[in-house]
Nucleic acid binder design. Structure first.
Lengths: 336, 336
DNA sequence: CTGAAAGCGCTTACAG
DNA sequence: CTGAAAGCGCTTACAG
């Protein structure tokens, strides 16, 4: 492997000079610069990031921490988030280390103490997430991709689920719907206080009450595919319901077929509105009026906040909720 | 940060001695060993992996290379694979770097030249995959997670789609089915020669011909959700067809509702058999007789092959096809 | 069994 | 504007 020493010799300068043209941190004459660049090109030099990291005590790697939670819950959008995170990190010049496993707190500690990472993005935030304390203790720059009841001052970026819930309920109310079914996640997700699940549900309940909508909550358990059983049961159990709110990716995917199977036309017989990641919505051609979760916007924002923290340009604790994008696909009907 | 020097001083030994007890590469008296360990614990020492990597010219990081391909194709199982890969790498003591983006060849080159990675797993292999040449040129230990027509001697690990296709066709033949519909991936996936798509299809066509089954191929385009339109059209277009083979995750998810919507009972009216990742099958409770792609087995095998290559224990080029697991969920009926 | 010393490939005050 | 030198925190022949 060709080193900075080889380049220096080839260009007839010192290692320091080569290093300076590499970093641009020190004024070097144009002539010398060109000579060095020519030498680098000729020898095919690339910097050894390990050596650089040791010398500078800095690493350009960010961890993505995705815990393993037991149960059958399978996130269909996980790939989209990981992919977007990796791309966003690269835009800022960072590599991404994937930290997954049951003992994620230990993984974080090891990565920090082993000087492998400069910061971390935490996925799947639950209330009282144990990783919050770990990050604080390690003084690790961190951004929660998801809100928690008590983030202990750590910055977070997430979809504004409260906004989505509020807008949905008000729109349904304006359209004259009186009884609405909310298809949610498996009960288990609420039990472990998965934050996005809880927040959306609570806000929806609260708004429904304030506008006089009867909101029926159905937890899509994992015993059937895409919550089709629950949706069907809800249709029978709540015959007065005129609309469905779906906050569950698998249920959104299955809904068109379930409705068709029940002989119901959307929106003539039943109205539907969902909140779902845009990547799934686009890739799978979701045909419903929805609030599309802007995965790239969330991820880009989170990475920006993280990088500012790492580079000490942090302007206080950032807590950002990104509004999902409303798209009217005509699946809501007027009832009054 | 506490260094090996601090530990040495605390224990009253040299840095070399500390290093030896750390690695166990040199016999050290039990007494000294204990003293050193006590000092490490007392000071809270952890090795600086950057320094170690520089000294040994070794890195314990493996890249996962997932290209970005244009189009709306959205892989529902991507998250499962990434997660499994990360866990598998950790079992072998490796970290995983996520390498995604449009210019993945350059990303690989940069990662290798920057001495960031010791090897790589390549995802989404297509025939004539350009990354194959890149890896060969860099002499980078690599495992293709997917087969290509010409792997140029590089090891690969993949699901045995040929086996799945053959078994399916023979089983359908044995059950007396004469005309079968194969629901595949979007045409685009075949156009870019996505290997798993092509291999399964070709083998199925070949076997069907040999056993006298008429195989109708339907490409699930991405214009409708879960291929429901295509499935429905196929039901009308091929009224003689008595069975469906589904090789398309989204279509598998949607199929129960589509069938229900068409008023068809499985398997009384129509037989269904699928090949789908087990993580999706389990998480989403797929109700069909299937060949379940064993994501963890494939990933563990791939990682094992890669690590052996990195550690020079490679026993020649490995080309491994992992048989998917057959599960009879009773969705095939006897026709003769 | 243990230590002194050189080296891995960079960066960065410091001096000129 | 450029270079000599020290240093980042490890590992590893080598000598004893």
């Amino acid at each position: 492997m060709v080193t900075i020493q080889d380049v220096a010799k080839e260009a007839g300068v010192s290692k320091a000079t080569v290093s300076y043209v590499l970093s641009g941190s020190n004024a070097i004459s144009e002539q010398t610069t060109k000579r060095v660049q020519k030498a680098m090109k000729k020898l095919g030099y690339s910097v050894n990031h390990t050596a650089r990291a040791l010398a500078t005590a800095k690493t350009n790697t960010i961890a993505i921490v995705a815990p393993y939670r037991s149960g059958n819950f399978f996130s269909l959008s996980r790939g989209a988030y990981l992919y977007a995170l990796s791309n966003a990190a690269r835009k800022f010049g960072y590599d991404t280390l994937l930290l997954t496993g049951e003992n994620d707190r230990q993984l974080i500690v090891d990565a920090v103490e082993g000087r492998k990472i400069a910061g971390a993005i935490l996925l799947d935030i639950v209330n009282d997430d144990p990783r919050i304390a770990t990050a604080k203790q390690l003084k690790l720059p961190v951004v929660l991709l998801g809100k928690a009841d008590n983030t202990q001052g750590l910055p977070y970026v997430d979809t504004d689920f409260e906004y989505a819930a509020e807008m949905m309920i008000h729109r349904l109310a304006a359209f004259g719907h009186k009884e609405v079914v909310l298809i949610g996640w498996p009960q288990e997700q609420y039990d472990i206080q998965m934050n996005y699940a809880v927040r959306f549900l609570q806000k929806a309940l609260e708004c429904a009450q304030s506008v006089g909508i009867v909101l029926r909550v159905v937890y899509a358990n994992d015993e059937t595919l895409g919550a089709s059983t629950e949706i069907t049961e809800a249709l029978c159990g709540y015959p007065q319901a005129t609309a469905f709110i779906i906050h569950n990716d698998a249920a959104v995917l299955a809904a068109p077929q379930v409705m068709q199977g029940c002989g119901l036309a959307v929106p003539d017989d039943i109205s539907i509105i969902t909140v779902v990641p845009d990547q799934i919505a686009t890739g799978m051609k979701i045909p419903y009026t929805s609030f599309f979760i802007d995965v790239n916007a969330i991820v880009d924002t989170a990475m920006d906040v993280l990088v500012r923290q790492i580079q000490q340009h942090n302007t206080g604790t950032e807590t950002i909720l990104v509004k999902p994008n409303f798209a009217d696909l005509g699946s809501l009907s007027q009832k009054n």
